[in-house]
Design a protein around this nucleic acid. Sequence first.
DNA 1: CAAATATTGTGAAATAAATATCAATATAAG
DNA 2: CTTATATTGATATTTATTTCACAATATTTG
Lengths: 216, 216
Amino acid sequence: MIMNRKCILRLSRYKNALKRLKALGFVKVFSGNLADAAGVTSSQVRKDFSLFGITGNRRGGYKVDELINRIREILGKNEIQKVVIVGVGNIGNALLHYKGFEAGGIHIVAGFDIDPAKYQRHAEVPILPLDEFQSFVQENDIKVGILAVPDVAAHHVSEIMIAAGIKGILNFAPIQLRGAEDVIISNINLEVELENLIYFINAAGKTGVLSPVEDE
Amino acid sequence: MIMNRKCILRLSRYKNALKRLKALGFVKVFSGNLADAAGVTSSQVRKDFSLFGITGNRRGGYKVDELINRIREILGKNEIQKVVIVGVGNIGNALLHYKGFEAGGIHIVAGFDIDPAKYQRHAEVPILPLDEFQSFVQENDIKVGILAVPDVAAHHVSEIMIAAGIKGILNFAPIQLRGAEDVIISNINLEVELENLIYFINAAGKTGVLSPVEDE
DNA sequence: CAAATATTGTGAAATAAATATCAATATAAG
DNA sequence: CTTATATTGATATTTATTTCACAATATTTG
Ligand SMILES: NC(=O)c1ccc[n+]([C@@H]2O[C@H](COP(=O)([O-])OP(=O)(O)OC[C@H]3O[C@@H](n4cnc5c(N)ncnc54)[C@H](O)[C@@H]3O)[C@@H](O)[C@H]2O)c1
Ligand SMILES: NC(=O)c1ccc[n+]([C@@H]2O[C@H](COP(=O)([O-])OP(=O)(O)OC[C@H]3O[C@@H](n4cnc5c(N)ncnc54)[C@H](O)[C@@H]3O)[C@@H](O)[C@H]2O)c1
């Protein structure tokens, strides 16, 4: 079953939306409700579900709890959830101390840096020397890492991460990292995002063109 | 000229790649070089350029400096570059103190919060009470804002921002914000990104499917 | 200077993604 | 119990995006 990235991203969003709907007291939802909450069309919701074999009840919609569980299962949340961070500076630190991932079952288990001033071996989430990266990752069977080092170090660090067995990297450095064969890399480039906003604001001002509201 | 978001995002990436190539001493590039650096195909590069009327020299490629300038011009970097941040917590603070945007001509000019403990009226980048948001934004003609408040406050704050005249929002709260007619919103959802990585790692482990390496 | 070659620029073709349509059917109403 | 109605699920259609293919044309080579 070949599934594209965009579709999986939407699944995650559906799950988030469902959690909010559940908090509002919803027990069942229709594709239209979910579409509104997630900012897509109802056709899109049903199409995505059909791709994954998620079925509802004709005329009865979907049961919220069942749906959340089904999506959880598909997203594999029970199999890998430990994540490490390399580069505990501004952004690495913010992520390291963010509590919001826990609710979704994602645990930040350690940070790594080369600056001895950052080391905190006995903190709740320890910050360790990069030298210990490989052994830590292998002992703890970590597969996902966040890369938050300066751009000049990013390529080098990514190679260390991949060599240690990391299979997925969320990269904040403003360079386009190339993954190895079986490594998936997600590049978050905030400057590019800001430039993009600026472009569309200018374009709208000049030409009256309506802005696209979706992400991708 | 109707241009889609994806294409503009790629333009930004080309510009980043070009800056790196320039730093490496490149004076001219071929579409293939740029494609490699930006992680796309050479056809894609040429197609994008043709869409914007960017021309090179048959057999001679493109001059790096000219190309950077041309893209800068298209992205409108000289028209809007002041950005404010609402919510100066973990992530807002990291962004507020990030120096990397300056090189690209994007200036973070102020932060806003509702927690008096955060106020720093006389700092280089002042942190001000949210009450002053509207007047500040209007006086300084700000069009772009970063939203980094807790999810429960995000919708409310986005309305304040839009009411004050903000036209582009980079949202870090894990909810799908809906923009008004002429407001463009870019949602950065890091948990969704991590879940996505986890999904593809699991999928690859189970089925041997090759992972997609591009973002979108 | 002529011939060979590499690269652009673009229209056509292929692929992928989103949306619309509608028969099937579960639920609700009478 | 029967009929009316709303919603799913699957297929068809449309739209968007990417890739291909190749003529046009600078540049380099002999
Ligand atoms: N902070 C932001 O808001 C922001 C915004 C956009 C992009 N980024 C990008 O994110 C990355 C991190 O930004 P930051 O502001 O947190 O930087 P920072 O300088 O605050 O932190 C970088 C950290 O990485 C560590 N480091 C350096 N080289 C290392 C190596 N080889 N191995 C391990 N650790 C190493 C440093 O000791 C430091 O602690 C940069 O690439 C930056 O361009 C940051
Ligand atoms: N920190 C991270 O690594 C991270 C990761 C992913 C997502 N996020 C999201 O980013 C947002 C910010 O996260 P954070 O960790 O920085 O949170 P935080 O709690 O550290 O900071 C939030 C800040 O917003 C301020 N605030 C609250 N209500 C406000 C209001 N109505 N108006 C103005 N300011 C207000 C608070 O005083 C605080 O300073 C959250 O929505 C969070 O889910 C954060």
